[in-house]
C-alpha cells in the first residue's frame, strides 16, 4: 500500500482497522510497513480523504 502524503491528514483512522499492526503514525507522518501488510485494503476503505492507494 502507498500513502499519498499530499492528502494524508495523519488522523490514524487506518491504524485502528489494520489487522496486522503494519501502520505507524508519528507527529508528522504515517508509514505502512509493506513487509507486514497483507493487502486486506481495510485502511484504503476507511481513509476519510482517500490518501491510501494500492501499489501498482
Amino acid at each position: 500500500m502507498k500513502i499519498n502524503r499530499e492528502l494524508c491528514d495523519i488522523c490514524g483512522t487506518c491504524v485502528a482497522v489494520c489487522p496486522v499492526d503494519a501502520i505507524i503514525v508519528s507527529e508528522f507522518r504515517v508509514d505502512i510497513d509493506n513487509e507486514k501488510c497483507t493487502n486486506c485494503l481495510n485502511c484504503l476503505k476507511v481513509c476519510p480523504i482517500k490518501a491510501i492507494e494500492e501499489d501498482e
Partner: peptide, 25 residues
C-alpha cells in the same frame, strides 16, 4: 487514541471491524 498501538505492543487485539469505525470529516 483511535490509532492506539500501546495495546498492540502488549499483545492485546485492538483492531476493529470496518463496521465498527466511523470515518469522519
Amino acid at each position: 487514541g483511535v490509532e492506539s498501538r500501546v495495546g498492540r505492543w502488549a499483545g492485546i487485539k485492538t483492531a476493529v471491524r470496518l463496521e465498527d469505525i466511523d470515518t469522519c470529516a
